Amino acid sequence: MNIFTYTRTCSIAALLAIASPLVNADIAAHAEPVLSFAVLGDAEPKPLAEFPHLARSVDHVNALAAVQPMDFVVGVGDIAHKGTLVQYDNATKELERLDLPFYPIMGNEEHGSSVARFLHYANLWNAGKVHIADARYVVEQEQVALVFASPDHGRDFDNSGVDWIAEQIFRLHPKPVFLVVHGAQAGAFPENAEKGITNTTFEKITRMDNLAAVISGDLHMDMDRVDHSKRIDDVHYLHIPALERTKIPDESNHTAMFRVVSLYNNGEVVVDTFESGSGNSPLERHDYRFSLHR
């Protein structure tokens, strides 16, 4: 059968002192969480290789993980500006402090160097917790699978890269899939509609029956001034804001944030957004929810 026949029609010390498990009351009353993971966005600071917001986010994620179930952390690429050693080295001082396994992909910045350099540092970041053997891989859970797809070049895919993604999603059917890519397809976020995956074959992936969500960064969007989470057809698109710099719609305001995705045993998904280092309560204005059941 052809792959595409399945198509659809405060301080961290203070934080630890006050932290308590996060509860979405209306969901928790009827369901139990079965999977939860944090997602960190682009870092790539410039002109200096300094990572204050990444450091604060690592502390914050560790604090949350100490008081509520959390399984791992995801990275959507562009940690090291131009893939330089000084950027990788300085980011490593922070990321190796994560208490949870860290599953990163490459972005266009990492392609400023080599895949081998990225894999070397990805495993330093994990400090033995998991081994990242390739720039593309799958993490399969009981209820859902995550397909991690680093771009082939820049932020884009060759046909071979698109085929690899499609093969994984097809193989996992009917299990729902969260696809982690550096940038979503061009046009998904009209705030910068020309930037993203331009390979038109990628559109076939977005019509595959069990693709539930696309998780991406790249655009450095200000969460308070853009449409950062949306449904297009039957796929949910989740933007992960950049940690060190905001660029869209402009650079006038930067608030470092990360997101936490939680799946419940009734198929409901809750996406919470936290301001880095600012307490254990998610920002209600950025709450996004959807169901894996159709």
Score class of each variant (00 low, 15 high):
residue 49 A to P: 00
residue 251 E to D: 13
residue 49 A to H: 02
residue 69 P to I: 09
residue 174 P to N: 13
residue 197 I to M: 13
residue 282 P to S: 08
residue 156 D to H: 05
residue 63 A to C: 12
residue 120 H to R: 12
residue 171 R to N: 12
residue 21 P to N: 12
residue 200 T to I: 01
residue 146 L to Q: 15
residue 121 Y to T: 01
residue 24 N to I: 12
residue 221 M to F: 01
residue 232 I to W: 01
residue 212 A to H: 00
residue 97 R to I: 08
residue 111 H to P: 07
residue 157 F to A: 01
residue 52 P to H: 05
residue 233 D to S: 08
residue 266 N to R: 09
residue 100 L to R: 02
residue 48 L to C: 08
residue 243 L to R: 04
residue 78 D to Q: 14
residue 102 F to M: 09
residue 261 V to D: 04
residue 7 T to L: 06
residue 215 I to G: 08
residue 219 L to R: 05
residue 53 H to F: 10
residue 79 I to M: 14
residue 136 R to F: 00
residue 17 A to I: 02
residue 109 E to K: 12
residue 247 K to H: 15
residue 207 R to L: 13
residue 56 R to D: 15
residue 88 Y to F: 15
residue 201 T to L: 10
residue 243 L to Y: 03
residue 261 V to H: 02
residue 23 V to T: 15
residue 39 V to E: 02
residue 167 E to M: 06
residue 260 V to F: 05
residue 223 M to L: 15
residue 5 T to N: 11
residue 238 L to N: 01
residue 72 F to H: 10
residue 130 V to F: 02
residue 19 A to W: 04
residue 26 D to M: 05
residue 80 A to E: 06
residue 182 H to N: 13
residue 102 F to R: 03
residue 35 L to S: 11
residue 166 A to D: 00
residue 125 W to S: 00
residue 210 N to A: 05
residue 179 L to E: 03
residue 243 L to W: 01
residue 121 Y to W: 14
residue 156 D to T: 08
residue 40 L to Y: 07
residue 145 A to Y: 00
residue 87 Q to E: 12
residue 107 G to M: 07
residue 147 V to I: 08
residue 12 I to D: 12
residue 185 Q to K: 10
residue 234 D to K: 06
residue 114 S to H: 07
residue 276 S to I: 15
residue 178 F to S: 11
residue 93 K to G: 13
residue 133 A to V: 00
residue 250 D to E: 08
residue 66 A to W: 02
residue 157 F to L: 09
residue 54 L to T: 14
residue 116 A to L: 11
residue 288 Y to P: 03
residue 46 K to W: 11
residue 261 V to A: 07
residue 273 T to L: 04
residue 79 I to E: 01
residue 260 V to R: 12
residue 192 N to I: 03
residue 241 P to W: 08
residue 122 A to W: 05
residue 69 P to C: 07
residue 294 R to Q: 14
residue 182 H to A: 13
residue 173 H to T: 10
residue 40 L to Q: 06
residue 89 D to V: 15
residue 194 E to V: 04
residue 277 G to R: 03
residue 39 V to T: 13
residue 267 G to N: 09
residue 73 V to W: 00
residue 26 D to W: 03
residue 163 D to K: 10
residue 24 N to V: 14
residue 51 F to R: 02
residue 100 L to S: 06
residue 50 E to W: 09
residue 202 F to Q: 06
residue 152 D to P: 02
residue 236 H to M: 10
residue 65 A to H: 10
residue 142 E to T: 14
residue 139 V to N: 03
residue 43 A to S: 15
residue 171 R to G: 05
residue 187 G to I: 06
residue 65 A to S: 15
residue 212 A to T: 04
residue 167 E to Y: 01
residue 205 I to P: 01
